[in-house]
C-alpha cells in the first residue's frame, strides 16, 4: 500500500465518518435514552429531563446528518447499497426522529391539556428511532443479509441498543439532576446495564461467526494478544460501573459525570472493535472504502473545508455545553 492521496483520502474519510457516528451515538444516545426513560418518569420529572437535553438535542442530531452526509459524499456507491438494503428500518428511523424532534417543541407550546399526548409521542419517537438503529446495526454486522434468523438477530440488537441508550440517558440524568430523580436514575442505569452488556456480547460473538474473514482477523496469534485489551477493558469498565450503581449518588455529588464518561468509553471500545472487524470494507465483504470512494479531487475539497471547520464546530459545541452547564433548571425562552 503506497501512501499517496488517492489511498489516503478514502482512509481519512472513513475515519471521519466513524468519528461522526461515534459522537452521534454517544450524544444523541443520551437524548434518545431520556426519551425512552420518559415511560418510567413522573410529569414533573419529565420536564426536568427535557430541560437536561433541550438546548443540545438539535446539535447532537446534526452529527447524524454529518455521518450520513459523509457516507453520501465520500462513499456514494456504499451509500446507495446500504440504504436501499435497509430501506424499511431507515424509514422507521426517520419516522422516529421526526416524531421525537417535533414533540420536543410541541409539548412545550400546545395548550396544557394536550401536553400528555406529545409526551407519549416523544417517548414513542425515541423508542422507534433507537430500535431502528439497533436493527440496522444487527443487519449490517451480518453483512446486510436479511434472512429470518438475521431479522431475529436484528431484533435482539435493537432491544439491546435501546437499553444501551436508556443507560446513557440515565447516566446523563444522574449528571444533570439531583434529589429523588437522580436516585431513580441510578436504578434505571443498573437495569439498563444488564441488557447493554448482553447486547455487546451478542454483537461481539455474532460478528466473527457471521464472517470467516472477520473470524480470522481476531483469532490468529499475535493479533489476539494486541486486541485482547478491547474486550478485557470493556468487561472491567462494565463491572466497575455496575458496582458504582450501588454507591451513587455520592455526597457533594462527586462522580456524577463518571457513569456517563464510563459508558462513553465502553461505547468507544465497542466501536473500535467493530471498526477493526470491518476494515477495509464499508459494505461488509462487498465494497472496500477505496472501491466506494468519490473522486480524489472532490474528497480533497471537502477535506480542506473539514480541517478548518471541524475544530471550530467542536469548540463552539463545548461552549454551548458550558453555557448550559450545571444542574438542569426549567427551560424558558427568556
Amino acid at each position: 500500500m503506497t501512501l499517496d492521496w488517492p489511498t489516503l483520502l478514502p482512509l481519512i474519510f472513513a475515519g471521519l465518518m466513524g468519528l461522526a457516528i461515534l459522537i452521534y451515538v454517544i450524544l444523541d444516545g443520551f437524548d434518545l435514552g431520556i426519551g425512552i426513560l420518559f415511560a418510567a418518569a413522573e410529569d414533573a420529572e419529565q420536564d426536568t429531563m427535557i430541560a437536561a437535553i433541550g438546548p443540545f438535542w438539535d446539535a447532537n442530531e446534526t452529527w447524524l446528518v454529518l455521518a450520513v452526509g459523509l457516507l453520501l459524499v465520500a462513499f456514494p456507491l456504499a451509500h446507495g447499497t446500504i440504504l436501499t438494503a435497509l430501506y424499511i428500518p431507515v424509514f422507521l428511523l426517520l419516522v422516529g426522529l421526526i416524531l421525537r424532534g417535533v414533540a420536543f417543541d410541541f409539548r412545550a407550546k400546545v395548550p396544557a391539556g394536550r401536553k400528555h399526548r406529545w409526551n407519549r409521542i416523544f417517548f414513542l419517537g425515541s423508542v422507534i428511532a433507537s430500535l431502528a438503529q439497533g436493527y440496522m446495526l444487527g443487519i449490517y454486522v451480518l453483512g446486510l443479509d436479511v434472512g429470518l434468523s438475521g431479522m431475529a438477530f436484528g431484533a435482539l440488537v435493537a432491544l439491546c441498543l435501546a437499553a444501551a441508550y436508556a443507560a446513557m440517558g440515565a447516566a446523563w440524568v444522574i449528571y444533570k439532576t439531583e434529589g429523588e430523580l437522580q436516585k431513580k436514575a441510578v436504578l434505571w442505569l443498573r437495569r439498563a446495564l444488564v441488557l447493554t452488556a448482553l447486547g455487546m456480547v451478542a454483537v461481539s460473538l455474532a460478528t466473527p461467526l457471521a464472517s470467516p474473514r472477520i473470524f480470522d482477523k481476531w483469532f490468529v496469534w499475535p493479533a489476539m494478544l494486541y486486541l485482547s485489551p478491547l474486550p478485557i477493558l470493556s468487561a472491567v469498565l462494565f463491572a466497575w460501573l455496575w458496582r458504582q450503581t450501588f454507591h451513587l449518588p455520592k455526597a457533594d455529588d462527586r462522580h456524577a459525570l463518571t457513569p456517563f464518561l464510563t459508558l462513553a468509553a465502553i461505547f468507544t471500545l465497542g466501536f473500535a472493535g467493530l471498526a477493526w472487524s470491518f476494515y477495509p470494507f464499508v459494505v461488509p465483504d462487498r465494497l472496500t472504502i477505496w472501491q466506494a470512494a468519490s473522486a480524489p479531487e472532490s474528497l480533497a475539497i471537502i477535506l480542506a473545508g473539514t480541517v478548518v471547520v471541524l475544530p471550530v464546530i467542536i469548540f463552539y459545541s463545548f461552549y454551548a455545553y458550558r453555557v448550559f452547564g450545571g444542574k438542569a433548571t426549567d427551560l424558558t425562552y427568556d
Binding site: 438546548p55 446528518v65 453520501l72 459524499v73 473545508g305 473539514t306 471547520v309 463552539y316 454551548a320
Partner: peptide, 25 residues
C-alpha cells in the same frame, strides 16, 4: 456525487452545525 457531495458537505459543516449549536443559546 463528485459535485453534489462537496456542496452538501459544506452546507452541513458551515451552516447546520452553526445553527444547531447557537439555537440553544
Amino acid at each position: 456525487g463528485n459535485i453534489a457531495g462537496p456542496l452538501l458537505a459544506y452546507e452541513i459543516l458551515t451552516a447546520f452545525f452553526l445553527e444547531a449549536a447557537f439555537l440553544g443559546i
